[in-house]
Design a protein around this nucleic acid. Structure first.
Lengths: 146, 146
DNA sequence: CTAATTGCAAAGACTTTGCTGTGCT
DNA sequence: AGCACAGCAAAGTCTTTGCAATTAG
């Protein structure tokens, strides 16, 4: 069994909850995403793969995954829905948001992580996660359309 | 007239929009907040000061303020609503979120701003704003309640 | 003057919840 | 048996929008 599944199973068990087939499938599909996704995308991906998991279960499972830190819940403000980001992947989990198109570009910055740890410690906290977004416009396009 | 009001007025004018009394009042009240606030809080503060501004106008005005970068819209995920942060204040605009209580503590980090500028440039973007949140739990309270 | 704005209530988008029947353990 | 679950549809929360009257420039 993969590491993320193991972690999830243990987390659920420790909280008196069950590692059900639906939850396993949801995490499995999430692991296949290579960028932040919306709840609706996840639901569609499940359906495409012939898995019958209800919307309610998807939302409930996402909540559990966020709690156990396997998934980071992010709000970009490009719509009103949440995005979810599977933390197990190798790619970056910080994001640049193109304010002109709403496109989200993940990147990685070890400096951010180091800064996060230092700042949290200085403020008397133990860091659990962070969210870092840069809003920007493509250089060379400095003019705004009125 | 204060600087923020000037900026707002100019922004509105440049976009063929009007600097109305309602918009002036909304910005005025926003300037009095010393931490991120919700739309509802703003509405209540307006009412408390005997100002009759509708909810629709509050939301519409917030949207304009966000567009002209006087206000940063932030999503903490502690509820499903947006928070708004007036950028004109001196205090920090990065935030530490206590995951145990949901409390939001602003802080300031020049390094984050520098990092933001460098990363955006390297990726071919001009930074417009950023959002940085650290989720953490108070040190010395490492144990989670089950 | 006349396009932009306001307030209100209704509509909308996304998420959560109550309930009923199932399934682990 | 006994608690946790899944699915469904209804309810909820926050935000946006249509419309008629009003106002800034």
């Amino acid at each position: 069994m993969e590491q993320a599944q193991e972690l999830f199973k243990t987390f659920l068990h420790d909280h008196g909850q069950k590692y059900t087939e639906e939850r396993r499938i949801v995490l499995e599909v999430i692991e296949s995403f290579d960028r932040p996704f919306e709840a609706e995308e996840l639901l569609l991906a499940l359906r495409r793969q012939q898995h019958r998991v209800s919307k309610a279960t998807v939302y409930r499972t996402l909540k559990h995954l966020v709690e156990c830190l396997l998934v980071n819940q992010i709000f970009f403000g490009t719509g009103k829905q949440s995005y979810y980001d599977f933390v197990g992947t190798q790619r970056g989990h910080d994001h640049l948001v193109d304010v002109q198109t709403g496109k989200i570009i993940p990147f990685s910055s070890p400096e951010i992580a180091a800064l996060r740890d230092r700042i949290a410690r200085e403020m008397g906290f133990t860091p659990v996660a962070h969210r870092f977004q840069i809003l920007g416009k493509p250089t060379g396009n400095p003019r705004e359309a009125h």
